[in-house]
Design a protein around this nucleic acid. Structure first.
Lengths: 336, 336
DNA sequence: TGGAATTATGTAAGCGTTTACATTTCAACC
DNA sequence: GGTTGAAATGTAAACGCTTACATAATTCCA
């Protein structure tokens, strides 16, 4: 069943059928109706491959994501896909894992698939090491690239992010104001986003003229789901003599690890130790006590990102960066 | 840059280039090398649209998922995508939500996209009401359909699932053996999988000749993330006089809700109340106490499902059903 | 060394659209 | 009724591959 069959049955040329299919203006209403009826009646659907070949596009966007099973990234992918679908685009998902080689590989698979645009979900796609961002710049020469929670100055790269620096500075500042000066900053990966959080944490100290201790900036080197590992890690630090009365974590999983640590050490939360998570994921309400955390309005970010993507594809020029503010969600693990 | 450019530069015909590209046997090694060198040198990549048009396939599989932000489904999507990629296939993701109309719509979008196969992730795609499964049967007339945790007898539909009936019967049976006869079964959606779990729960009572109370089969009607809602729901049941010394839940989120309920009611876990989750998600270790739960080897299921998919596409006949057994993970919320 | 069998390569016809350009139709006006 | 310009429709050439079939080159053996 092709456009020829339809054209024959409707007694018109294939061009007219094509015009009807593509909603061209210059078709007599009567003709349009006739064609549409036949199409309906035959259950004809255009061949997307042929259309892709003709238009050099299949209205498809590539979603690159290190690990779509991560709670936060999964939510992002979900919202992005839904927004793209609403705009009439398909989503090709490619989960790369966290190492550079696989990210490059995933990216080139998507580009070979001739997607109209690339969306990189998660700040882990951009690196502190500028050289390691070259692959993004290269991709941007072919298609517009959207970064969720990443920042890169480059033609044809569009960034949508939340101001993690600001949120973390605010959280840390509030704790400092409560005369809690020994705040442990717990992070997990050296992503753009983590680094911004760290910078915010440090800025809070600096702006209050308080000394920063390097020992309190702690990097957990383990899986994204290893709550027990985080707990052990903190116990270990404790054993080595490190003391702290608050933990600000780069994500909720780390914060839950801290909660487990506190329970193990018989510390009362929040009296003896305050714990703040990040992302306002389901973990923050699963936790006991529930986590005070930061919500960065992921759904909003995603809808903005897709809007930018679609407008760019439509030829409307878009701002290179859109920055949203997070919101502190007060729960039981810290009274800020 | 097309196959013509390459053929010209290599001094061969486009057919030969095509053969090299597709790994055909009948190419002289010397010729192959020459072509490959030129391709490499030019950085040529074949146009997938044209290839798709020629082959009527773009090596793409459609993944249909109600909600890929759900912890469990997200993991499934992740593993499926990775396995598909390894097999050389692309994944188009389509998140439909839970109502039938949107599922049908998502499915037809994927079919119009001419995917080679459809994978339905999650038992929510099949319904108790046989009529509502017709759309799957229709799809199966076009492409092979893979069901993860769903069961449907139909030509060209392949099911990969875990034996939830068995696992739930085992869990319930162990509790009954401990003389705990007032076990609340808590579920969340009337999916195939939930119904199997319920059947297993009931079977355990029956096989031990114990009376079943209808009141103890409880349906929570709320969002997939609403832990507090579950807690309230159970408190409400308690207020209405319902008593139970154990909860077996259809997923970990529900179980965490039960944990919250227990804490609110000052019930000790597991002394006063035993709680069993399902899925062995991160929630089960985030919870305090950690959940005893059922692991159904999702990664294995997914890899098997994709294997079945790829083999089917490759023309090798495959078993219509593959059933795995779950594993009970003992943690703190119940000593089984 | 000739010729059959085998292997390698080339030619050209699809695949099903879109769209520039050509042609026809038609309403409006003189 | 003839002219004109706009609107509607048609024709045919891309788009860049794959592949059946035709042809050329090579191998093998009598």
């Amino acid at each position: 069943m092709t456009i020829y069959d339809i054209s024959k049955q409707a007694g018109v040329s294939i061009a007219t059928v094509s015009r009807v299919l593509n909603g061209s203006e210059n078709v007599k209403p009567k003709t349009r109706k006739k064609v549409l009826d036949i199409i309906e009646q035959c259950g004809y659907t255009p061949n997307v491959f042929a259309r892709g070949l003709g238009l050099n596009s299949m209205k498809t966007v590539g979603i690159l994501c290190a690990d779509s099973s991560d709670i936060y990234l999964a939510k992002a992918v979900y919202h992005i896909e839904r927004n793209l679908k609403t705009a009439g685009y398909h989503s090709i998902l490619n989960c790369t894992g966290y190492d550079l080689a696989h990210k490059k590989e995933g990216l080139s698979l998507l580009l070979n698939q001739r997607v109209d645009s690339i969306i990189m979900v998660g700040s882990n796609f951009i690196s502190e090491n500028e050289k390691d961002n070259q692959y993004i710049r290269d991709a941007a020469k072919q298609v517009p690239v959207m970064l969720l929670n990443g920042d890169l100055d480059c033609e044809n790269v569009f960034c949508t992010m939340c101001d993690d620096y600001k949120s973390m500075k605010e959280v840390t500042g509030r704790l400092l104001s409560q005369k809690i000066h020994d705040i442990l900053f717990l992070y997990h990966s050296r992503t753009y986003s983590s680094m911004k959080k760290l910078a915010g944490y440090q800025a809070a100290y600096v702006s209050m003229d308080l000394p920063l201790s390097k020992d309190l900036t702690c990097f957990f080197n383990g899986s994204h789901e290893d709550i027990d590992g985080v707990c052990d890690y903190l116990c270990n630090l404790h054993d080595k003599g490190l003391r702290f009365r608050a933990v600000v974590a780069a994500d909720d999983m780390l914060a839950v690890g801290a909660v487990k640590y506190a329970r193990k050490m018989n510390l009362r939360i929040p009296q003896d130790i305050k714990i703040v998570g990040y992302n306002n994921s389901i973990l923050s309400v699963c936790s006991e006590p529930k986590l005070t955390t930061v919500d960065n309005h992921l759904e909003l970010l995603c809808s903005q990102l897709v809007k930018t993507c679609i407008c760019t594809l439509g030829g409307t020029s878009q701002p290179a960066k859109t920055i949203f503010s997070g919101e502190i969600i007060l729960r039981e693990s810290a009274n800020l």
